[in-house]
């Protein structure tokens, strides 16, 4: 464990807490893409298959349980909770996210470390996570004004993978033959997708103005 990875995990955890706070405090999930939440639940469920087979550390297992349970809970809230589901921007959240799932499956079958059940599912989860934010970014552009907590949620979600890139660079130089080219490429694409959001987020922060994404 290095400081970059810890910072990344804490930022990721914080983004989940901010999202839970937004839904709980505002009793609303307006501005949140259910499709992105479903994709993240799928990412965690397919990546953490080893939760019950390989024990790496208490930290590792606890974080996996937290990410799986929070993502599933948010999807449940947005789909079935009588109060919350009514505030979901159903007619704005129209990204065809099953295409992202399909492309990730094809990529995972083509590019993986080893052709085993675990490795293909792991590669699938890495590719899917790289694009999982797209429905959320599209929804933000459509919904015009973005409430602070939603903006912070997306910001921290994007920042965490940037810390992971620093972690991979650090591990590349400190551990011999460490190569995670699948994670590197997908992580780079994932972080790049946030580029314009980061720009508008910085501008809104500098001008102390409401976050506005161009339509």
């Amino acid at each position: 464990m290095n400081i970059f990875r810890l910072a990344g995990d804490m930022t990721h955890l914080f983004s989940v807490l901010v999202l839970l706070l937004k839904i709980y405090a505002t009793k609303s999930c307006s501005g949140i893409s259910l499709k992105t939440q479903e994709l993240y639940a799928l990412v965690f469920l397919t990546r953490y298959l080893d939760l019950f087979t390989d024990f790496i550390s208490v930290y590792n297992s606890v974080m996996k349980v937290v990410f799986i349970s929070s993502s599933v809970a948010i999807v449940w809230c947005m789909r079935y909770h009588p109060l919350t589901r009514r505030t979901y921007d159903k007619d704005l959240d129209t990204f065809r996210h099953y295409i992202l799932v399909g492309v990730s499956i094809i990529l995972a079958l083509l590019f993986h470390d080893r052709f085993t059940f675990r490795e293909v599912f792991w590669a699938f989860s890495i590719y899917l996570e790289a694009v999982a934010i797209l429905p959320q970014l599209v929804l933000l552009q459509r919904s015009g004004n973005v409430d602070n907590l939603t903006g912070q949620y997306v910001f921290f979600l994007g920042a965490y993978r940037a810390f992971y890139i620093l972690n991979w660079i650090y591990r590349y130089f400190t551990e011999n033959h460490y190569s995670r080219w699948i994670s590197w490429l997908a992580g780079f694409v994932q972080t790049a997708l946030y580029a314009d959001f980061f720009y508008y987020y910085f501008v809104s922060w500098k001008n102390n103005a409401k976050l506005q994404l161009p339509a």
């Binding site: 080893d50 974080m63 490795e119 460490y178 190569s179 080219w181 699948i182």
Partner: peptide, 10 residues
């Protein structure tokens, strides 16, 4: 290669 390393990252 990366395949023989456990996936110790989240």
């Amino acid at each position: 290669s990366s395949s023989d390393q456990p996936k110790d990252e989240l």
